[in-house]
């Protein structure tokens, strides 16, 4: 017996979008399966451009994109099944939260009574029901973000696309929003959201798409990407009063592959056994009277992850 893999909700082929001379995305060929998928990439990676192409806000400069089986640009059939939460903090400030969601539901074809009911449900889900009659212009940044999320989920779309949905939310609201995404996924909707914070994705899904400089860097399960990273040694920077003396001692340590003194006298250590280094460093530094001033990992940032995947080095 064979299991047919589900049809992708998004299918991009040789997708490219340019803003004059600036590359938004380039030669992007990717199938995004149903479920919850995180779109990762540093600032300027092309995440927002990709999501705008996907939502039908922009047209591709080259290549093609299909969402739920059809090109999304100016396509009401796609938009009736798609919910999009844009990144820009723009709302009709004179409307109340309820009017805002209800109006957009009416445009989605909902009858007045049903639109009112669905709007209240959506506002309840983003915990804005108490502020439903307040003007959007008076909302805080986090409340405005939640209002935008509410309009994207109110019509129960098959695919919800959210551009940096957790920006501006406090930790509690962030937790609640992640929980909301989990519920949406459990109800059968596909959720595609962009972020540049790795752990936000990890809290929600293992399925990610990584973009860098407008190109697809990796797609798949996070453990597989982590495994790719583990093939590289970890790097640490140490600022010491006596860097040469400390370097002499560290080079003898098990797992350490390279030690060099970078600009400004900063010691850069590459090791395949980071736990061993962290354990032994205090004793070594003390014995060598090296006087450590600062210690930091150079591999925690997403940019470093991308550099590894790109085969570059920082």
């Amino acid at each position: 017996m064979t299991h047919a893999s589900p049809a992708p909700v998004v299918r991009a082929k040789d997708l490219a979008r340019f803003y004059g001379d600036v590359v938004g995305v380039c030669d992007l060929t990717v199938d995004i399966p149903p479920g919850t998928v995180g779109l990762l990439g540093p600032t300027g990676a092309g995440k927002s451009t990709f999501l705008k192409l996907l939502a039908g806000e922009l047209k591709p400069s080259r290549g093609s994109i299909e969402v739920l089986g059809a090109p999304p640009f100016a396509n009401p059939a796609v938009h009736s099944r798609l919910g999009f939460c844009p990144q820009q903090d723009a709302l009709w400030d004179d409307m109340t939260a309820l009017e805002f969601v209800e109006f957009l539901l009416r445009l989605s074809g909902f009858e007045p009574a049903r639109a009112r009911k669905a709007a209240l449900v959506a506002l309840e889900r983003v915990q804005l029901v108490d502020a439903k009659d307040r003007r959007l212009g008076g909302f805080s940044k986090g409340m405005r973000q939640r209002a935008r999320i509410a309009q994207s989920i109110a019509h129960e779309p098959q695919l919800v696309v959210l551009d940096e949905p957790l920006t501006g939310l406090d930790p509690l609201a962030r937790h609640a929003t992640l929980e909301l995404f989990r519920q949406l996924a459990a109800e059968g909707a596909s959720v595609l959201f962009s972020t540049h914070v790795l752990h936000e994705v990890e809290a929600l899904t293992t399925n990610v798409v990584l973009l860098h400089r407008g190109r697809l860097l990796a797609r798949g399960e996070v453990p597989a990407i982590r495994a790719l990273l583990d093939r590289h040694p970890r790097r640490y920077s140490i600022q010491a009063r006596e860097p040469r003396r400390l370097a002499r001692e560290l080079v003898e340590l098990e797992g350490v592959e390279a030690v060099r003194i970078a600009e400004g006298g900063m010691l850069v250590v590459e090791t395949r056994q980071p736990e061993r280094l962290l354990e032994a460093l205090p004793a070594i530094a003390s014995a060598a009277r090296a006087g450590i001033g600062a210690f930091e990992s150079r591999d925690e940032g997403l940019e470093a992850v991308f550099d590894y995947l790109m085969g570059g080095s920082t």
């Binding site: 939502a55 039908g56 100016a74 059939a77 938009h79 999009f84 445009l107 989605s108 309009q151």
Partner: peptide
């Protein structure tokens, strides 16, 4: 954006 991405 909100208007262009509605099924109208």
């Amino acid at each position: 954006t909100y208007l262009l991405l509605r099924p109208i």
